[in-house]
């Protein structure tokens, strides 16, 4: 029997007729995407790595080898910033996960008006971060802000309090805003995962006498664990790199109290025009996030295997 496909001139056979091998033809097809990635990702990355070995500033550049890295690694402040960035990430992601889980559970509950609640949770995610942050700037304002006003009214504060004027309160205020922005998406992912859990599992557990909390702990959590792990790791990467929120609220201040690695990099490279030093900081971020991605892949595989996801 003659295979019909053999008789139909397809793209590959036509390419062969024109003297192109199959491999070359494949490369030809991939080329536009490769060129795009090259321009958007690879070239800036390589250029950053190159810059990190120079003392580039507005006046020009010359090769300095590992000097930028040596300087960076011997600055105590750098370690302080790395520590703060991790603290920022762990705290913010933890809250996003907990709030996301609570939100998803509530949204998944069979209550009247559920669809409306699902819509109402969206705005923090939908409205542009800059606009949301300006709203929060007003909330945190010591003279006119809702938070300071309300705190005085219920007796927590004796007078005006500028939330963004002190190192600690500014840091935690920025965390609150970051959690506010990040929670809706986490909630929606968790909600989708919860809706994928078979109702039979809950009914079977109910017949066996499992309480609501027991079912949540022994069925819901394990069933959505792969999604929890994925979201935690992705959210960690995004939070690590979170720039706009801090920049709009505090620009890394006061006195560096909210300066994370990404803010530090920006301030060094763009604020102080020390492109070489900034590039070294950027490369440090790439290395840390690269390790994170490896961890992510490994952990996700293990979790999927453990929780019976194919």
């Amino acid at each position: 029997m003659v295979d019909i496909a053999e008789r139909q001139p397809n793209a590959v056979t036509m390419a062969k007729r024109r003297g192109l091998s199959e491999a070359w033809f494949a490369w030809l097809l991939i080329l536009p995407a490769l060129a795009f990635i090259g321009v958007i990702v690879a070239w800036p990355l390589l250029e950053t790595i190159r810059l990190s070995f120079t003392n580039a500033d507005l006046g020009g550049e010359s090769w300095v080898g590992l000097a930028n890295y040596q300087k960076l690694l011997s600055t105590p402040k750098f370690y302080e910033i790395v520590g703060r960035t991790f603290f920022w990430m762990v705290l913010s992601v933890s809250f996003k996960m907990i709030m996301g889980l609570i939100g998803a559970t509530l949204l998944n509950a069979a209550v009247p008006g559920r669809a409306l609640f699902r819509m109402l949770i969206m705005p923090p995610w939908i409205i542009p971060i800059a606009i949301g942050c300006i709203g929060w700037l007003w909330l945190y304002n010591g003279q006119f802000g809702f938070l300071a006003g309300m705190s005085q009214r219920i007796g927590i504060l004796n007078g005006p309090f500028e939330f963004l004027a002190y190192r600690n309160s500014a840091f935690y205020s920025a965390i609150v805003t970051d959690v506010w922005v990040g929670t809706p998406m986490v909630s929606l992912f968790f909600l989708a995962a919860m809706q994928g859990v078979s109702r039979d599992l809950y009914e079977a557990a109910w017949v066996d006498g499992a309480s609501r909390w027991y079912r949540f702990r022994r069925i819901t959590i394990p069933q959505i664990m792969p999604v929890i792990v994925s979201m935690a790791l992705l959210s960690a990467i995004w939070t690590f790199n979170s720039f706009e929120i801090i920049w709009i609220l505090t620009q890394g201040g006061p006195r560096g109290g909210t300066t994370t690695m990404i803010i530090d990099t920006y301030k060094t490279a763009i604020g102080n025009f020390k492109f070489g030093d900034g590039a070294a900081r950027a490369v440090a971020i790439v290395v840390i996030l690269g390790l994170f991605s490896l961890l992510y892949m490994g952990l996700l595989n293990r979790v999927n295997k453990h929780y019976g996801v194919k």
Binding site: S198, D200, L201, E203, W206, G209, R218, Q223, Y307
Partner: peptide
Amino acid sequence: APVHRGISMVFQSYALYPH
């Protein structure tokens, strides 16, 4: 409640806990 009725049930989908 189901647990106090003295019944047990086998579901069409088996309803086994995959994890």
